[in-house]
Amino acid sequence: MMTASEWAIVALSLKVSFAAIICTLPVAYSLAWLLARRRFPGIIFVDALVHLPLVLPPVVTGWLLLLTFGRNGAIGGWLEQTFGITLVFQWTGAALAAAVMALPLMVRAMRLSIEAVDRKLVDAARTLGANKWRAFLSITLPLSLPGILAGAVLGFARSIGEFGATITFASNIPGQTRTLPLAIYSELQIPGTDIAVTRLAVIAVILSLGALMMSEWLVQRSTGGRAHVL
């Protein structure tokens, strides 16, 4: 079916996307909860900032990541000096780019499902002796689970397809940051690679379609068929 080099590309893409989504989940859920449940000055700015990667040219997002997380960037320099962690030109950098690009989709799905949780249920839990934290863990979190699943899988699908910010920030290094879309782009630069491109494109379609169908199935299953992602 797949050649060894194709499998290596898919494996790298999956690794990058999984890492991106796992690390982004708590951040995305916290932001979603903040936007759904709190009113504070500057909320519109936070909301817009979270959604920025959705509308900004990905190459600009990648360039901003380079400025911030590059070796001379404010955070990148600190990470390298303190922990010896370098993100640029590494698969972790590709994961960071994918995470930033997936964040808006994840926050949107989670925010909707948190807003759908009736606050009166949280009030009821409080009167029954639950403090804020227990009320959150036993009521808000489980009732917003469909949105968490939907957000995670949608974000995963978005990560698999991430191109612009990745190639700008993490570059196009075989085995390190050359994920599926970057591999297709690289093949397209070489004449006579129609078959290689087609094979990779088919894999991309199957992966993305599978992720979308998986998210719909997960959400339907966890809500008994009452909610949809797609």
């Binding site: 009167t127 002796g129 639950a130």
Partner: peptide, 27 residues
């Protein structure tokens, strides 16, 4: 609210939809 120790029967009941009757009773 959690420190007041009130047993509040709401007009709209507010059962937890994801929990069974038994889990609601024991909450």
């Amino acid at each position: 609210p959690e420190s007041r120790g009130c047993g509040y029967v709401f007009q709209d009941s507010r059962l937890f939809p994801h929990k069974t009757v038994l889990a609601n009773l024991n909450y």
